[in-house]
Design a binder for these strands. Structure first.
Lengths: 351, 351
DNA sequence: CCGAAATCTTGAAACGTCTCAAACCGTTAT
DNA sequence: ATAACGGTTTGAGACGTTTCAAGATTTCGG
């Protein structure tokens, strides 16, 4: 026995028809007032609008979308809702979407290909107008399927989507690594350890390559001056655990500069150093990656490579909108430049 | 001239009807296979299922929801997509929703009542089955409007929703403050500063009250032993700026213990101490609130009051489901208990 | 004051699915 | 042989909106 407040199930919930009756016009006119008010005479328009607010009418998007074929929501498929990097991106997307009156359907693939697949299917069922997705891997077949279903998409944080297949928005990870390397070189460091070599992740590999490139450009052989320490997972805990392994390089020399694959590792590493009584940056310089908001909350402030996260989200949504509006498909690959943010976790090498 | 890949606009996109034709049955049967397979004879069922996969059919949720009156998505209205507290909650909600095959529509009210209002309206238009909302203020009228529109909701992080009006899920902030206070008292501290008195925010006021209650219970007059420092905003920057103001209490004595309204303030405060060469916990003990993941990444590890964020999200979604399924409206108020996590930012008072 | 043009309104047909009562069919009980 | 029955299938509306051709009304030049 449903309570009377639940109007969903009521037999004649107020719809366009009720409004029309109340205003003494036809349903078509009400629809026009809602969608193309300029077609309706001033007098009728206000009459209808009054009826709308009197009856507290709310458009039913199901009927609307079904008939018009236009959806009013877009999907956002992230790898990990919890990751601060993504949330900042999400803010950009949400904001841009809100401006177009679009609702964002949030789905989490939790790094799992099956979940990604299931979620993309859900988006297809929901007939979203488009989707911003951070793919779990290089396999684009699911995305192509989505495309065949008539759903536009933009890949986020993956620079390797062929430009004739789809749009993508990303940040140049190699350049980020380069910037970090150059910074440390400028401070006089000649040996740097890269902490976080999980090269299954494209982004991380590129950061490492950028670091090496910096040494190359400076006329120093990377194989000799860049040490690599691998981590099973890219989190703070692993970063902390690695301290002893990192502190002496292959030749038994004391490590004075570390470039971490992300900020979380860097924080963990700094914590480990702190526990051992070592000081940052005096004993060891540390550079992170991402510029999470906490990078600026800790002491010492973490020098790190910032990604324009918010902009990334906005851009993705803009590309998506363009694709949704335009009758002509035109894909675009937008690559942002990272930016080194200097704080207090790095200093000139002196002994 | 739309490209042929866009099947949305095609005149006869594959629907239930095409599948039916292909399988040599009626549309009604296909619908049954999809929704009540047990009604359909084995042979027919497989025949239909083959047709479905051959044609790569995907259900159109607009048609489905329009006819059945059932929606397959729920709304999630947060105060700030960026806040790590909310993202953890979001994960709980997303996960619970995914298990029921529901999609989560994410909206951000960015602490603005107007945006909350606009977003609730959007949810009503989308005819979501229900919504989890973190209200921006005490004004429930928008939520009541939503209810009248037939959308169920659960309030999150607000314990003050009357139980005959709607369900709510929250954490007992007073108890959290109490726990923090008891912890500091047990360590021998007799004077504590509460940093972050923005009492417009209910949650913060309760934490402060809890702290005072701890002193009261210990037979110490709160007015005399608890100092209050107000902040214009509850972020790290304000926390750092407040250091000098906090360091000496009203009577010119050195402050030895600080309880911060949230972890971000605590981190900023610790940073400020670090810059002045003061050590945590030796010079000042610091307690935070929230147990953000970074609390365990910094050095020293931050002692803080943890909220069961993930559980909070799950519980909210469960209550919502119950409300959506049950024909009988029954509201519930679920209050979780916070938990003090002891790390290394607090220690016994010694001089 | 006429007719045509411009402006406004509307009837009726979709959109894709679900639902329900009715139809169908092969069995079994009478 | 007939009736009744359980198990399957289906025809024919809805659901609430948009759309578009066509109808109704007003405006305006001549």
């Amino acid at each position: 026995m449903p309570k009377s407040t639940n109007r969903t199930s009521g037999p004649n919930r107020t719809g366009i028809t009720q409004v029309a009756a109340h205003a003494g016009v036809s349903p078509a006119t009400v629809s026009n007032v809602l969608n193309r008010p300029e077609l309706v005479a001033e007098a009728t328009r206000t009459k209808v609008q009054e009826a709308i607010s009197e009856l507290d009418y709310v458009r039913n998007s199901f009927g609307s979308s079904l008939r018009s074929g236009r959806s009013t929501s877009v999907g956002l498929l992230v790898l990990d809702v919890t990751n601060p990097f993504f949330t900042e991106v999400a803010r950009g997307i949400e904001e841009e979407a809100a401006e177009s009156g679009l609702a964002v359907v949030l789905l989490n693939s939790a790094e799992s290909p099956e979940r990604q697949r299931r979620n993309l299917r859900l988006l297809a069922e929901q007939r979203v107008a488009g989707a911003v997705v951070m793919p779990v891997d290089n396999d684009l077949s699911d995305l192509l399927w989505l495309q065949r279903q008539g759903v536009h998409w933009v890949a986020l944080d993956r620079g390797d989507v062929p430009e004739d297949v789809g749009s993508s928005v990303s940040v140049d990870n190699r350049e980020g690594g380069l910037a970090a390397g150059q910074h440390l070189l400028a401070l006089g460091h000649r040996r740097v350890t890269f902490l976080g070599g999980a090269f299954a992740i494209e982004q991380v590999r590129l950061r490492y390559e950028g670091l090496r490139a910096a040494f190359d450009e400076a006329g120093l052989d990377p194989d000799e001056h860049v040490e690599l320490v691998s981590l099973s997972q890219l989190n703070a805990h692993q970063g902390e655990r690695a301290v002893d392994q990192v502190l002496l390089d292959g030749a038994g020399r004391r490590t004075r500069a570390v470039f971490c694959a992300n900020d979380q590792i860097a924080l963990g590493f700094m914590k480990g150093l702190g526990k051992r009584g070592l000081r940052v940056p005096d004993d060891v310089s540390v550079v992170g990656y991402d510029d999470l908001s906490v990078a600026d909350m800790v002491h010492p402030g973490l020098t790190t490579v910032a990604q324009p996260k918010y902009e990334l989200g906005r851009a993705a949504m803009q590309l998506l909108s363009a694709q949704m509006d335009g009758s002509e498909q035109s894909y675009e690959r937008r690559i942002f430049r990272p930016r080194l943010v200097m704080r207090d976790s790095t200093c000139a090498l002196r002994d």
